[in-house]
Amino acid sequence: MSCQPLQASNMEQLLEGIWKQNPVFVMALGMCPTLAVTVSAFNALGMGLATTFVLICSCTLISMLRRFIPREVRIATYIVIIATFVTLVDYIIQAVSLALYEALGAFIQLIVVNCIILGRAEAHAANNPPLSALVNALGMGIGFTIGLFALGSVREVLGAGKLFGISLFGEHFQPWVVMVLPPGGFFVLGLWLLFFAWLAKRKEAQHGA
Protein backbone atom coordinates (compact mmCIF):
# COMPACT_ATOMS: atom_id res chain seq x y z
CA MET A 1 0.00 0.00 0.00
CA SER A 2 2.81 2.35 0.78
CA CYS A 3 4.96 2.00 -2.29
CA GLN A 4 2.37 2.65 -4.96
CA PRO A 5 2.18 6.41 -5.16
CA LEU A 6 -0.89 7.80 -6.87
CA GLN A 7 -2.12 4.47 -8.11
CA ALA A 8 -5.08 4.48 -5.83
CA SER A 9 -7.34 7.45 -6.27
CA ASN A 10 -7.44 10.02 -3.52
CA MET A 11 -10.92 8.94 -2.53
CA GLU A 12 -9.81 5.35 -2.15
CA GLN A 13 -6.88 6.46 -0.08
CA LEU A 14 -9.14 8.41 2.18
CA LEU A 15 -11.51 5.50 2.63
CA GLU A 16 -8.61 3.19 3.31
CA GLY A 17 -7.86 4.88 6.62
CA ILE A 18 -11.49 5.42 7.54
CA TRP A 19 -12.69 1.93 6.83
CA LYS A 20 -10.44 -0.80 5.39
CA GLN A 21 -7.40 0.00 7.50
CA ASN A 22 -9.19 1.69 10.37
CA PRO A 23 -6.47 2.25 12.96
CA VAL A 24 -8.67 1.29 15.92
CA PHE A 25 -10.90 -1.49 14.64
CA VAL A 26 -8.71 -3.12 12.00
CA MET A 27 -5.09 -2.38 12.81
CA ALA A 28 -5.58 -2.03 16.59
CA LEU A 29 -3.04 0.77 16.81
CA GLY A 30 -2.93 3.59 19.33
CA MET A 31 -4.73 1.51 21.93
CA CYS A 32 -3.39 3.50 24.87
CA PRO A 33 -5.35 6.72 24.23
CA THR A 34 -8.20 4.65 22.79
CA LEU A 35 -8.76 2.97 26.13
CA ALA A 36 -7.73 5.79 28.42
CA VAL A 37 -9.51 8.93 27.26
CA THR A 38 -12.75 7.59 25.83
CA VAL A 39 -14.87 8.06 28.94
CA SER A 40 -16.99 10.62 27.13
CA ALA A 41 -17.86 11.51 23.56
CA PHE A 42 -16.42 15.00 23.99
CA ASN A 43 -13.05 13.72 25.20
CA ALA A 44 -12.97 11.14 22.43
CA LEU A 45 -13.63 13.73 19.75
CA GLY A 46 -11.08 16.11 21.26
CA MET A 47 -8.43 13.43 21.34
CA GLY A 48 -9.33 12.27 17.83
CA LEU A 49 -9.14 15.76 16.37
CA ALA A 50 -5.88 16.53 18.17
CA THR A 51 -4.34 13.35 16.78
CA THR A 52 -5.70 14.08 13.31
CA PHE A 53 -4.15 17.55 13.41
CA VAL A 54 -0.75 16.16 14.38
CA LEU A 55 -1.08 13.40 11.81
CA ILE A 56 -1.92 15.72 8.92
CA CYS A 57 0.64 18.41 9.72
CA SER A 58 3.53 16.08 10.40
CA CYS A 59 2.84 13.77 7.46
CA THR A 60 2.55 16.69 5.05
CA LEU A 61 5.73 18.30 6.32
CA ILE A 62 7.62 15.02 6.26
CA SER A 63 6.42 14.39 2.75
CA MET A 64 7.64 17.82 1.65
CA LEU A 65 11.03 17.19 3.21
CA ARG A 66 11.25 13.57 2.12
CA ARG A 67 14.05 14.01 -0.44
CA PHE A 68 15.99 16.18 1.90
CA ILE A 69 16.04 13.83 4.93
CA PRO A 70 18.92 11.33 4.90
CA ARG A 71 17.84 7.77 5.67
CA GLU A 72 20.13 7.49 8.67
CA VAL A 73 18.43 10.23 10.65
CA ARG A 74 14.90 9.89 9.36
CA ILE A 75 13.38 8.53 12.55
CA ALA A 76 14.99 11.28 14.62
CA THR A 77 13.70 13.87 12.17
CA TYR A 78 10.19 12.42 12.17
CA ILE A 79 10.08 12.41 15.94
CA VAL A 80 11.23 16.02 16.14
CA ILE A 81 8.55 17.05 13.66
CA ILE A 82 5.82 15.03 15.37
CA ALA A 83 6.84 16.32 18.80
CA THR A 84 6.65 19.87 17.51
CA PHE A 85 3.09 19.49 16.34
CA VAL A 86 2.13 17.75 19.56
CA THR A 87 3.48 20.74 21.47
CA LEU A 88 1.47 23.06 19.26
CA VAL A 89 -1.71 21.09 19.78
CA ASP A 90 -1.01 21.08 23.51
CA TYR A 91 -0.92 24.91 23.54
CA ILE A 92 -3.92 25.21 21.29
CA ILE A 93 -6.10 22.94 23.42
CA GLN A 94 -5.11 24.89 26.54
CA ALA A 95 -6.12 28.07 24.78
CA VAL A 96 -9.43 26.64 23.58
CA SER A 97 -10.63 24.67 26.60
CA LEU A 98 -8.86 24.05 29.88
CA ALA A 99 -11.55 21.56 30.82
CA LEU A 100 -10.74 19.41 27.81
CA TYR A 101 -7.03 19.84 28.51
CA GLU A 102 -7.44 18.53 32.03
CA ALA A 103 -9.67 15.68 30.92
CA LEU A 104 -7.14 14.50 28.35
CA GLY A 105 -4.22 15.05 30.70
CA ALA A 106 -0.94 13.42 29.78
CA PHE A 107 -2.47 11.76 26.75
CA ILE A 108 -2.03 14.90 24.67
CA GLN A 109 1.71 14.81 25.19
CA LEU A 110 1.63 11.07 24.58
CA ILE A 111 0.31 11.59 21.04
CA VAL A 112 3.99 11.83 20.22
CA VAL A 113 4.43 8.11 20.80
CA ASN A 114 1.20 7.11 19.10
CA CYS A 115 2.38 4.54 16.60
CA ILE A 116 -0.23 5.53 14.03
CA ILE A 117 1.63 8.76 13.36
CA LEU A 118 5.15 7.39 13.10
CA GLY A 119 3.71 4.48 11.15
CA ARG A 120 2.07 6.77 8.59
CA ALA A 121 5.21 8.88 8.34
CA GLU A 122 7.42 5.89 7.72
CA ALA A 123 5.06 3.83 5.58
CA HIS A 124 3.46 6.51 3.48
CA ALA A 125 4.57 10.11 3.82
CA ALA A 126 8.25 9.26 3.36
CA ASN A 127 7.61 7.89 -0.13
CA ASN A 128 4.73 9.97 -1.43
CA PRO A 129 4.10 13.55 -2.53
CA PRO A 130 2.51 15.96 -0.05
CA LEU A 131 -1.04 15.80 -1.39
CA SER A 132 -1.14 12.02 -1.21
CA ALA A 133 0.39 12.11 2.27
CA LEU A 134 -2.17 14.64 3.40
CA VAL A 135 -5.09 12.60 2.11
CA ASN A 136 -3.75 9.43 3.63
CA ALA A 137 -3.16 11.13 6.98
CA LEU A 138 -6.61 12.70 6.88
CA GLY A 139 -8.22 9.31 6.26
CA MET A 140 -6.31 7.73 9.12
CA GLY A 141 -7.12 10.66 11.38
CA ILE A 142 -10.82 10.45 10.61
CA GLY A 143 -10.73 6.69 11.07
CA PHE A 144 -9.05 7.11 14.45
CA THR A 145 -11.54 9.80 15.49
CA ILE A 146 -14.46 7.58 14.49
CA GLY A 147 -12.95 4.73 16.48
CA LEU A 148 -12.54 6.88 19.59
CA PHE A 149 -15.99 8.36 19.19
CA ALA A 150 -17.54 4.89 18.88
CA LEU A 151 -16.02 3.97 22.21
CA GLY A 152 -16.56 7.31 23.89
CA SER A 153 -20.23 7.61 23.01
CA VAL A 154 -21.11 4.11 24.24
CA ARG A 155 -19.17 4.62 27.44
CA GLU A 156 -20.72 8.00 28.10
CA VAL A 157 -24.27 6.82 27.38
CA LEU A 158 -23.99 3.82 29.69
CA GLY A 159 -21.56 5.28 32.19
CA ALA A 160 -23.28 8.61 32.71
CA GLY A 161 -26.58 8.47 30.83
CA LYS A 162 -25.44 11.39 28.71
CA LEU A 163 -24.13 12.18 25.27
CA PHE A 164 -21.95 15.28 24.89
CA GLY A 165 -22.99 16.13 28.42
CA ILE A 166 -26.70 16.17 27.55
CA SER A 167 -28.77 13.92 29.75
CA LEU A 168 -30.59 11.25 27.77
CA PHE A 169 -32.60 9.35 30.34
CA GLY A 170 -33.55 11.90 32.96
CA GLU A 171 -32.22 12.31 36.46
CA HIS A 172 -33.08 8.84 37.73
CA PHE A 173 -30.70 7.10 35.35
CA GLN A 174 -28.50 4.52 37.03
CA PRO A 175 -24.93 4.99 35.75
CA TRP A 176 -22.97 1.84 34.93
CA VAL A 177 -19.91 2.79 36.92
CA VAL A 178 -17.78 0.10 35.29
CA MET A 179 -18.11 1.83 31.92
CA VAL A 180 -16.14 4.88 32.96
CA LEU A 181 -13.52 2.75 34.70
CA PRO A 182 -10.64 1.21 32.70
CA PRO A 183 -12.32 -2.23 32.40
CA GLY A 184 -15.23 -0.54 30.64
CA GLY A 185 -12.84 0.62 27.93
CA PHE A 186 -11.72 -2.93 27.32
CA PHE A 187 -15.30 -4.28 27.31
CA VAL A 188 -16.55 -1.72 24.82
CA LEU A 189 -13.50 -2.02 22.57
CA GLY A 190 -13.90 -5.79 22.62
CA LEU A 191 -17.56 -5.54 21.69
CA TRP A 192 -16.79 -3.20 18.78
CA LEU A 193 -14.04 -5.51 17.54
CA LEU A 194 -16.45 -8.42 17.83
CA PHE A 195 -19.06 -6.49 15.89
CA PHE A 196 -16.66 -5.64 13.05
CA ALA A 197 -15.33 -9.18 12.92
CA TRP A 198 -18.91 -10.46 12.75
CA LEU A 199 -19.71 -8.00 9.93
CA ALA A 200 -16.63 -9.09 8.00
CA LYS A 201 -17.50 -12.74 8.47
CA ARG A 202 -21.04 -12.22 7.31
CA LYS A 203 -19.87 -10.31 4.25
CA GLU A 204 -17.48 -13.12 3.45
CA ALA A 205 -20.24 -15.68 3.76
CA GLN A 206 -22.47 -13.65 1.45
CA HIS A 207 -19.74 -13.33 -1.16
CA GLY A 208 -19.05 -17.02 -0.91
CA ALA A 209 -22.66 -17.92 -1.50
Partner: peptide, 8 residues
Protein backbone atom coordinates in the same frame (compact mmCIF):
# COMPACT_ATOMS: atom_id res chain seq x y z
CA UNK B 1 22.70 14.73 8.52
CA UNK B 2 23.72 17.55 10.82
CA UNK B 3 22.50 20.11 8.30
CA UNK B 4 19.11 18.42 7.99
CA UNK B 5 18.62 18.05 11.70
CA UNK B 6 19.63 21.61 12.34
CA UNK B 7 17.27 22.91 9.75
CA UNK B 8 14.38 20.79 10.91
Amino acid sequence: MVRTLMLV
